[in-house]
Amino acid sequence: MKILVELSLLFVLTLSGEAISSVLPFSFPGTLIAMFLLLFLMGSRIVKEEHLAISSAFFSRYMALFFVPAGVEIIENLEILKSSWLPLVAISIISLFITFFVSAKAVELVEAISHKKAEEEA
């Protein structure tokens, strides 16, 4: 029974996110609205952790499964990939490394500064 309640909650939330997204004056994805909605509901204790315990364990364990069909869609782009796969792959991978490096180091920098401040205050 509990799993039915959990799934209803999740699907109603996602649908609400889509509904809100469709009336916004700018484009913003419904799934992220649903995420912030759930965060708000949990923060205000309307939805409690145990309300989503079973489905969250399943979804976070096997999350990657749900990306499989979107990835298979690559097959629709074989023509473009055939002619320019090298730059596309190279740019994707190189910029992945650059983005990862810059954001990690930015966080480490801020963390180091705030540590120093905390120590000076102490």
Binding site: F11, A34, L38, L39, M42, S56, S60, A70
Partner: peptide, 17 residues
């Protein structure tokens, strides 16, 4: 299966919370 990406993404709020 792709349709489930919505609920799965919304579910990220659970870990954040």
């Amino acid at each position: 299966i792709n349709l489930f990406l919505g609920p799965v993404t919304a579910m990220l709020a659970y870990s954040i919370y």
